[in-house]
C-alpha cells in the first residue's frame, strides 16, 4: 500500500469498540490513527503494542500489525520489535496502571534507552476495566472501592519520571482536544528517539473528579505561550514540577539526543536471514582452537 494514499480510516478495524460511550479512549485512538496516516505510515508497516486494561483493547480497534500482550510489558515488546525491524513504525499504547504501576520499571528504562518508538499513555487516573480502583496517578484523596479514604499517597508524575530518566520527548495531551492531541502525537512519531505522550483520557464511568470539564478548564496549552521554549531544560523542569498547574503540549524535546539505533548501530531488518549458517560462521569455530 503506497503511503500517500493512506487515509486515517485505513487504520480503523471493522471491530466496534466496547469502551463506555463517552470514554476518552475514543478520542485518543482517533488522534493516533490520524497522526499515523498524516505522517505517511501505512498499516502494513505499523506495529501497535498494547498491554492490559481498557487501553489494551486498542490493537483490536485499530488496523495494523499488533500485539496485545501481558499487563505492563508493552514497552519491552515494542522495543524488541523496533530493534528487530527498524523500518517499522512502532507505537505502544497503555494506561496509567499498565505504564506507571505494573510497568513502571520498564517505563523508566525505555525512556533512558531512547529507542525510536512512540508511547501513548491513556491516563484516566483510575482502574476502569476492574471497575474503579485507585491508579498510580489518582489523587491522594480520591475515594475508591479499594481506597475508601483515598490512596493517601502522592500521585506519580510521569513527566517528571521521564525527565529524570533522560527523556528526549516529553508531552501531554487531552483526548477531547482532538486537533492538539493529533498534532502532538504526530510530533512524537516524527521525533527520532523515545517519545512519551501522556494523554488525559477521562473515564466517564468511574472517575467523577478528573473529568472532561476539569481538564478543559484547567489545562494550560503551552503552544499558546510564546515565551515557552520546549528545548529549555530548566523551563521544562519548572512546568513539569509545577504543583499548581497542568500543561498540555510538548513540554520538553531534545532534538540532539542520540537514539538507540544510532548509538548501537542497529539498522538492519533482522527478519531476513540466509538459508544456512551465515557467512563467516566457521570463524566462530576457529576461535575455540
Amino acid at each position: 500500500m503506497s503511503s500517500e494514499n493512506v487515509r486515517f480510516t485505513d487504520f480503523k478495524s471493522d471491530k466496534q469498540p466496547t469502551w463506555c460511550p463517552g470514554c476518552g479512549d475514543f478520542g485518543t485512538m482517533n488522534g493516533m490513527m490520524k497522526a499515523l496516516a498524516e505522517t505517511g505510515n501505512s498499516p502494513d508497516d505499523t506495529f501497535v503494542v498494547a498491554g492490559i486494561g481498557c487501553s489494551g483493547k486498542i490493537g483490536t480497534y485499530m488496523r495494523s500489525y499488533a500485539l496485545h500482550g501481558v499487563h505492563g510489558r508493552a514497552l519491552p515488546v515494542g522495543t524488541g520489535a523496533k530493534l528487530a525491524n527498524p523500518n517499522l513504525e512502532v507505537m505502544v499504547a497503555g494506561g496509567d496502571g499498565d505504564g506507571y504501576s505494573i510497568g513502571a520499571g520498564h517505563f523508566i528504562h525505555a525512556v533512558r534507552r531512547n529507542v525510536d518508538i512512540t508511547y501513548v499513555v491513556m491516563d484516566n487516573r483510575i482502574y476502569g476495566l476492574t471497575k474503579g480502583q485507585a491508579s498510580p496517578t489518582s489523587r491522594p484523596d480520591f475515594e475508591t472501592s479499594t481506597s475508601p479514604d483515598g490512596p493517601k499517597q502522592p500521585p506519580v508524575n510521569p513527566l517528571a519520571l521521564a525527565m529524570a530518566a533522560g527523556g528526549s520527548f516529553i508531552a501531554q495531551s487531552f483526548s477531547s482536544d482532538a486537533l492538539r492531541h493529533q498534532e502532538i502525537v504526530e510530533e512524537a512519531i516524527e521525533h527520532d528517539g523515545f517519545s512519551l505522550v501522556n494523554t488525559f483520557s477521562p473515564c466517564v464511568t468511574f472517575n467523577d473528579v478528573d473529568t472532561y470539564d476539569y481538564f478543559r478548564d484547567s489545562l494550560v496549552d503551552l503552544s499558546e505561550d510564546d515565551d515557552y521554549d520546549r528545548h529549555d531544560y530548566d523551563q521544562a523542569k519548572d512546568a513539569i514540577l509545577d504543583a499548581d498547574k497542568e500543561y498540555m503540549g510538548v513540554l520538553y524535546q531534545d532534538e540532539d539526543s542520540t537514539p538507540y539505533h544510532e548509538a548501537h548501530g542497529v539498522t538492519e531488518n533482522m527478519a531476513e536471514i540466509p538459508d544456512g549458517a551465515p557467512d563467516g560462521a566457521t570463524d566462530l569455530v576457529r576461535e575455540f582452537y
Partner: peptide, 23 residues
C-alpha cells in the same frame, strides 16, 4: 544485537517483540 534488559520480564518481552517482527 544483544540487549541487556532491566529484568527477565523485559528480556522475554523484548525477545517476543523481535520474534513478532520476524527475527
Amino acid at each position: 544485537h544483544v540487549v541487556q534488559a532491566e529484568d527477565e520480564l523485559a528480556a522475554i518481552n523484548m525477545a517476543l517483540g523481535a520474534a513478532r517482527a520476524g527475527a
